[in-house]
Design a protein around this nucleic acid. Structure first.
Ligand code: FES
Ligand code: FES
Lengths: 149, 149
DNA sequence: TTAAATAGGACTAGAATAGTCCTCAATTAA
DNA sequence: TTAATTGAGGACTATTCTAGTCCTATTTAA
């Protein structure tokens, strides 16, 4: 199904909530109770988002989490890669080691292009787009095949 | 990582091999020995591809598998959905049941758009594109730096 | 100093995947 | 007609991955 992990799904919910909320800094526990996601799980996700520079954290009392940039500047690609690592469909798109199929596999370059296309698509959608109420058919069409012919 | 399953990866290797091979009909065992993938696994994949109308099978002695269409007419999207089901990042893009996040989730429409975009990208690349020798310079691989900016 | 928070990582249980195997059905050729 | 070949379909197991929890250390405000 080419699916996103559950944690990534939660992350979008959490970030959407944070984008809509006026408050600048929110504690993990607040977020948990507002979104209905279990607190330890929320914390785990928030930490990952901090590591990927999507969120900024403040320690200590009165501490919490805040968006590192405006919702317009946070791409869906950034969120996904924060939770799941580099966006790539196949192993060999990330590192070219250990991918020698017996009969010589020349697929690499082409998969790379596909990955690039998908990455572009995800890069072009921001958190602001996700929170926008009704989807504006802002067609993000990238004709990959045309790049070959 | 937004990754493809290993079986899907194998499927592309198998199909690439079949596309390049002159022979019309290939037995599962032949494919296994040529690609180096274990025979039972190859069979499993071939069966799935038949069910999805990507391959056509012939039973009995001298039987085997053949591409259902020309490589130009077999999209990567078709291959992926044969192995992994509908191409969609989130559950609620497939069926809209049971996705009511406490605070009212209006994400659907927008995820739908993202899914559509990715689907378009995968639909536009064919098996012929994958087998094409060295389509692109190395530079096309996903620029990891952009994931963290 | 104390309380409130995050950082980091270990750990467990459950789910999904990969991979194998067995039996049945169909086709060809001797 | 029979035997050999090959795919269909599905059950099954083992392994890996994911989700989720929890513990301890660190940082900061009051
Ligand atoms: S499997 Fe990595 S290049 Fe083909
Ligand atoms: S989770 Fe399905 S619509 Fe938001």
């Amino acid at each position: 199904m080419l699916r996103l992990s559950k944690l990534t799904d939660y992350a979008t919910v959490i970030l959407s909530f944070m984008a809509k909320d006026k408050t600048q800094v929110l504690a993990a526990m607040e977020i948990a109770s507002m979104t209905g996601i279990a607190q330890p799980t929320v914390s785990k996700i928030l930490k990952l988002l901090v590591n990927a520079n999507v969120l900024i954290s403040t320690r200590g009392a009165k501490g919490g989490y805040a968006l590192a940039r405006t919702p317009e500047e946070i791409s869906v690609a950034a969120v996904i890669s924060a939770l799941e690592g580099p966006i790539a469909l196949t192993e060999c798109s990330i590192s070219h080691q250990g991918c020698e199929q017996a009969s010589g596999c020349d697929i690499r370059g082409n998969w790379g292009l596909i990955n690039q296309t998908i990455h572009n698509a995800l890069e072009s959608v921001t958190l602001a787009d996700l929170t926008r109420p009704a989807a504006v058919p802002e067609e993000v069409f990238v004709p990959v095949a045309s790049l070959y012919r």
